[in-house]
Amino acid sequence: MTTPLVSMHGLSRAFVSSKGMFGESRTMRAVDDVTLGLPAGKVTGVVGESGCGKSTLARLALRLIEATSGSVSFDGVELGGLGPAEMRQIRRRMQMVFQDPYSSLDPRYTIADSLLEPFAIQGLMPVGATRKERVAELLDMVGLAQSTASNFPHQLSGGQRQRVGIARALALKPQFVVLDEPTASLDVSIQAQIIELLERFQQQFGLTYLFISHDLSLVRYFCNQIVVMYLGRIVEVMAAPDARPQHPYSRALLESTFAPDPAKRRIVQPLGGEIPSPFALPPGCAFAARCANVSERCRRERPALADTDAGGRVACHHPNR
């Protein structure tokens, strides 16, 4: 395994919500004690249902929100210790593509303005004719017509806007890109084009991706390493995209994916039980209430992430071998 470009160590983020002025405050651990390395030049996928903390993890990785505890280091530099000027410097090398292409572009900016904004913010604004060239290159790179430059976002389709979002993220030639469900709000036909585009850039520029998704089949297609999250914690890391999931939750997730070929469809065992409130997690395994392999020990003792024979890690007392 290559050395990680980004490593997270014991990373946690808690959100405190208080009920009114005098109500007691409740703490939700959106991300809890995550230790994970993102190998350079590889794609790491993070899957889990909504609310499992995957988007929070993405924002922590880029220090868009501050961690409650733990650390993130990028290329050996700990992000938490950087001042504003150093942080701005390092942001050139790490970027993000957002889920919602409708709100990720300022409605008052033309596409050219949006594409030039990273240069402006970083004090790298090209002067004179090179400015137009830059925009032309970026549009060309993501397969958009040159005439798009003078358009406003509302004149473009969702897929076109997402292309602009990708071009903007890649404008400063970053090494690390977080993809926060980049296809979730697009039509299926457009999804494939966007994924293909992202895949091409990954290979062309040797990018390191952190790919957030709730679509396990897409993650299996696209990623080199798969991380499964449940209620803020990593329950399983699969070292290869085709590895057999060992955690009962990962298995359930995988079984729930839709197979286009009717012959390959299985009878899906729906998960029973209830998701525990993220404000009051049980003392043992968070998945115990819904798990088929559950034992008394699971309700008492929280399983730690342990290495598996397949080179991954799993947090389960009774994994499926």
Partner: peptide
């Protein structure tokens, strides 16, 4: 809370920008 504000911050922009 619009995403383009977060995008701007991810590009390294300060509060003034």
């Amino acid at each position: 809370s619009e995403t383009y504000i977060e995008a701007t911050i991810a590009m390294g922009a300060g509060s003034g920008h």
